[in-house]
Each structure stands twice: as C-alpha cells, then as structure tokens.
Amino acid sequence: MSVKLSILFVLACLLNFPAFAQEKTKKELKAEQELKKQKEIEALIDSKNFVFEAQKATPQGGRLLNLDYNTYFLKFNETNTTCDLPFFGRAYNVAYGGDGGIKFEGIPENTRIEKSKKKIIVRSTVKGKNDVYDLLLTVFFNGDASLSVTSNNRAPISYDGVVEAPKTDDVKK
C-alpha cells in the first residue's frame, strides 16, 4: 500500500512541476514592473514633453520645506516651458512687491539629455521676461526627480518631486 501511495505521490509531483515553473516569482514581477516604469520614463523624457510637480523645496543654505498642495510645477516642452514654483531664499535684483515665486514662460535653449544606468539628466536654459533660468533636472527611473534652478537675480534653489506625462488638457493647449 505504501509503495502505491509513494508512486502516486511522485506522479502527482511530476505532473504539477511544470505549472510551478511557469509562474513568476515576486522578484521577477517586481523587476518587470521596474523595467516597464523605466521605459515609460525614458520615452517621456525623450519626447521632451513632461511635467515636473514639486513636493519639497530646499533653498541654498536652508532647510527642507514640504510644499502644500500639488500646484507647483514645471511644464517642459520643446516649444514652450512654463514654470510656477515658490521661492525661498535671497533675491538680488527683483522688483519690490513682485509675486515672490519663480514664474516664467519661454522657449528652452541648449537642451541636453544625458543618460546613465540609474538616472537621466536634462539641462536647459530658459529666458523669461526679466531673468534667465538654468534648469538641471535629474530624473530617476522610478519617476522621482530633483530640479535645481539657478538664475541671475536669485540664489539657487532645489526642488524634489515627480515627473509625469502632461494631462490631456495641457497637451491640447
């Protein structure tokens, strides 16, 4: 009886073995999702049409500040770049009673994209109405990003946030 039971057990194991081999492990599934996200981020940056949403600000010589609401952004496009970010720090030559933030709209110039194994770096210069802004955007393959803004009239400031595809309303405009 035990011989028949052991043979039946071995047969059952052999018949079920191929089914287990076809299932993917959690590690493989996670690696596939990461690769998919990486391809999406690369395609987004290569299209030169994306939105950076700021979540934290770090002024020069200051501490990290969490930004309320997700209303601070940099909409990057080859033909027009729009920025609305808060500014904390020293301003050198700014009109009294101005809006206080980094707000500009202009055509990006000298845009360079550098890719490495873990991140993509986008460098660009945008001439606003009253200032020239040098942008350094570091995008990691999980969608997290860091933006450094340097201008002639203000101290440098950095922002942490995420990079996303523009909303459909933004694409139509």
Rank of each mutant, 00 (worst) to 15 (best):
K56D: 00
A57V: 08
T58G: 04
T58E: 14
T58L: 15
P59Q: 10
P59K: 11
Q60E: 14
G62H: 14
G62P: 15
R63G: 13
R63E: 15
R63A: 13
L64C: 04
L65A: 13
N66F: 03
N66P: 06
D68R: 01
Y69F: 15
Y69W: 15
Y72N: 07
Y72Q: 13
F76S: 00
N77V: 01
E78M: 04
E78K: 04
E78I: 03
E78H: 02
T79K: 08
T79V: 08
N80H: 05
N80T: 05
N80K: 08
T82V: 12
T82G: 04
T82H: 06
C83F: 09
D84W: 14
D84M: 10
L85A: 00
L85N: 02
P86R: 00
F87A: 08
F87V: 06
F87M: 10
F88A: 07
G89F: 08
R90Y: 13
R90D: 09
R90L: 13
A91K: 15
N93S: 09
V94Q: 11
V94F: 13
A95E: 10
A95D: 06
A95R: 07
Y96A: 11
Y96L: 12
G97L: 03
G98V: 02
D99L: 15
G101D: 09
I102F: 09
F104E: 01
F104G: 01
E105Q: 11
E105P: 03
E105H: 12
G106C: 07
I107A: 02
E109Q: 15
E109F: 11
N110A: 08
N110Y: 07
N110L: 10
T111E: 04
R112K: 12
I113F: 05
I113N: 00
E114R: 05
E114S: 09
E114H: 06
E114K: 08
K115M: 00
K115S: 01
K117W: 14
K117V: 09
K118I: 11
K118C: 03
K119H: 10
K119A: 05
I121Q: 12
I121G: 01
I121L: 15
V122H: 02
V122S: 02
R123H: 13
R123S: 06
T125M: 10
T125Y: 08
K127Q: 10
G128M: 05
G128A: 03
G128E: 05
K129I: 04
N130M: 10
N130K: 14
D131N: 09
V132K: 12
V132S: 07
V132R: 10
Y133P: 13
